[in-house]
Every structure is written in structure tokens, then in C-alpha cells.
Design a protein around this nucleic acid. Structure first.
Lengths: 220, 220
DNA sequence: AAAATATTTTAGACTTGTCTAAAATTAATA
DNA sequence: TATTAATTTTAGACAAGTCTAAAATATTTT
């Protein structure tokens, strides 16, 4: 079995792994979990002993298929609880993350299955992130980072990569929530910022820092 | 703040306190938590430092008003989650205890409040135990142990004091669930056993061991 | 390629919660 | 009441997870 501390490490390593297939560096994990590199090294050894990660001293870690499955099951629970908190308990999308962070460690496959059914088998959480299925498969539906887009056009916001309340509140103020449809009208080559316009003609400016955290999909 | 281990100790002490106002002995707590007396002594010192219990060496502990408030808030969460698991996720009454034992430590007053509202402000959990209100007040509604009953008559089963799956399954097989109405037809002075009869004329025998764990109320 | 810098790991210590075995205290018995 | 028995506490140790400071390894700069 895995402790909730181990689960948090695996989740962090999994998230840092997606996108780049390189090893994840100790310092990156430490930063992401707000802990010291020394602690990370200790835990990595433990996870390596359990075959959850492949570890090479001074070279970082790669998550194994086994570790990934654990991470995905935690992420699945996390996102299902987020849906519960928002749909049923009427929390706002910037309030659910921290609570789900606690609920995700209650480990019962049966409960997770029933929760899933009770919520109507949702495919995405309130932030637009896909909910892994029972087998740990993630259906991304062709989402890409807005910062990776090179062609002007019409897009729909599917999700975010930063779940901090402050970021979410910022987005909401700008009118950007999952489902928002907008067109890119201007892209600045120099600082990678862009200008977008909503269907209601309202136009806003988006910096590189923001667009790096927005998941979008082509719209039409 | 309290750790979930501290919370489990406080809950155990609270439960062992109700009924008798004497001090709770170290060994009783150890038994209830399946741990050693030495561990209990250690934790009791910690809880005493936090003014959660009054401790006298070799004499046991008394829970303080402060400790009781913590215990009751945990019990409130526990029972609300039990209602959720049974009403919403359709678990059976003998399956909810262990899961609620984990969920109860997710500590957010706001979430508890919303959960309470979402469930329709239930007053009792699936085992018939009263759910403490926000202020930590318990409304027992005049429930007493069946083993304390001295007068024959008609009673209704409101709850149980043993939440183990095996006990609950035993009761269910006998036709005893919260809400069951029955009449005591015979009471044995010698072994404190009794014979009861349901409205459908089915009659069963109840030993002292069983009746000690059944909460009943006068019916009419 | 050697020196300087940054990162990672080790070493040793701390906290929480646990244990066993021995000492202290209380309760029971003769 | 003195001795025996039972219970409780202390003492010392362990595991998990964390930390700081020092040593080891990598990376960057000159």
C-alpha cells in the first residue's frame, strides 16, 4: 500500500512528467511540493524500492507504469471529488481544489466507482481537466496549451493548469471560464502575448504567463 | 489544531465517557483503539497539555468541555458522511462505518455545513445515532438501552451502539433495523434475556449481549 | 580543461506515534 | 496487614517523514 505522502509525491512526479518525457529533477519535485531537496531524495529512494519510479543518482527520476497507475487513480479521485463539491455542494471552482486534495486520499475503489456513477460519469472536472477512467486512461480530447498555438482562429477554453484560487479568480474576472469561446485577433512574436476577443465583442490581452496555463481546443 | 490520531483518541474517550461520568481508564482506551496502554499514556499526556482531557496519573482521564467539542464535531462529520454514503451512494448500513471513519478527518466547517444542507439536515445517521448540531448539542430524543428497560411494552428501535458489520448483519437477518416496532412479551430475571414480537407476529429471542447494544424508545 | 557555481546526496538530528520490557503504583487476596 | 496480582507508567527503541549543514557530483564559465 501507499501512504498519502507517497501518493502526493507520485502525483507531483506524474504532473511534472507530462509533456516532457525527460527525467524529473529533484529540485522540481521539491519546488512543486514546497519541501527540501533532501526530503525528496529520501522519498525517491523509497518509491524506487517499491518500483514506482526509476531513479538514477544525480539524474532525476522517471515514473514507472506502476507508479503512473497509482498517480492516475489519485487524480481520478481528486477530480471526481471536485465535481461533487461543485455540482452537489455548490462550491465555486476556485474553492474545490484544497478540499479535494484531502478527500482524494480516502481510498476505496468501490466508493470511487459509486461516486462516479452518482455524478453521472463526468468526463471533466470543474477546471476542464479530464477525469482518468477506471483503467487509468486519460481522454484529453485534443487539448493543447494556448501558448503552443501558432495559428489565429476560434478556440474554446477547456481547462487550466494552475488551480490556485488567485489564478482562477483572475480568470473569472476576465470572463474566462471553461466553455468560453474566443478568437485570437493578434499574436505578438516578441513577448508571446496575444489579444483575444469574445463573441460579445469584449477583447482582452493575454500574457505568455497566462496562456501557458490555459488548455484550449479548436472551435469549428 | 488536532491531528487525526488525536481526534480518534478524543472520540474514543468521549464514547467511553457517555453514560458513566467516572474517569476513563487507560486500558479501556487501549482496548477500544486496539493499541497498547503505553501508547495511550503517551497520547493522554499530549491531550492533557492541550487541555483536551484532565489527567491524573494511575487514575485515568476525564474529557474536558474543549475536548468534548472536538469529539462532537468529529462525530458530527462521521454521521453526516454515513448518511451521504447510504442515501446518495447507496451503500448498505453495515458498509458505511469504515469509510466514514476516514472521511470524518477531512476538516472543513464550511464543507460540513454544506453537506448537512445537501443531505436535508438529517437528525440521525443510518444506525439511528443522533447527529450533533453545529454547536455540539446532541438530541437523543429519550433513547435508552433496551437492556435498561424494566417495563414490558411496545418499543421502537432507534439505533445501535455496536457498528461492526457482523453485528449489523446479524440484526438485519433477525428483522431488526432502525424503525422496527416490537413488543416485549417476556423478560427473564435470571439471564436478562427477553422475548420480543413484531407486528407481523414473528417472535425472536434477545440475549443481554444484544440488548446492551440496542437503543429504543417507547412507542405510543 | 581547470576553476567557479549550482545542484544533489549524505549525515545526523528532530517529531509523531508506535512498540516491548521493566519499574512504579494500585487493587486484591490470604 | 503483608503479599500477590493486576494495572499503569517510564525508559528506550523504532519507522516515517522532515529538516539543516556538509560532502559529492554536475554544470557552467573563463
Amino acid at each position: 500500500m501507499t501512504t498519502s505522502t507517497e501518493e502526493n509525491y507520485l502525483k507531483a512526479i506524474y504532473h511534472l512528467s507530462t509533456g516532457n518525457q525527460n527525467s524529473v529533477l529533484t529540485s522540481a519535485i521539491a519546488g512543486s511540493l514546497s519541501t527540501s531537496s533532501a526530503s525528496v531524495t529520501d522519498m525517491i529512494k523509497k518509491l524506487s524500492d517499491k518500483n514506482m519510479v526509476e531513479y538514477e543518482r544525480y539524474r532525476g527520476v522517471k515514473i514507472t507504469r506502476k507508479g503512473e497507475k497509482v498517480a492516475l487513480s489519485i487524480i481520478r479521485r481528486h477530480r471526481l471529488w471536485e465535481v461533487f463539491l461543485m455540482d452537489k455542494l455548490k462550491f465555486k471552482w476556485d474553492e474545490v481544489h484544497d478540499l479535494a486534495e484531502e478527500l482524494e486520499h480516502v481510498s476505496s475503489d468501490e466508493m470511487t466507482r459509486r461516486l462516479d456513477a452518482y455524478l453521472g460519469f463526468p468526463k471533466f472536472d470543474p477546471h476542464g481537466d479530464p477525469i482518468p477512467d477506471t483503467n487509468g486512461k486519460v481522454h484529453t480530447n485534443g487539448q493543447v496549451l494556448l501558448s503552443d498555438i501558432i495559428k489565429k482562429g476560434k478556440y474554446i477554453l477547456c481547462g487550466v493548469n494552475d488551480h490556485s484560487p488567485s489564478f482562477l479568480q483572475y480568470l473569472e474576472k476576465k470572463g474566462l471560464v471553461p466553455g468560453s469561446v474566443f478568437s485570437i485577433v493578434e499574436m505578438d512574436e516578441y513577448d508571446n502575448s496575444m489579444q483575444i476577443i469574445f463573441s460579445n465583442k469584449k477583447s482582452i490581452f493575454i500574457s505568455k504567463e497566462i496562456s501557458k496555463n490555459l488548455l484550449v481546443r479548436n472551435h469549428e
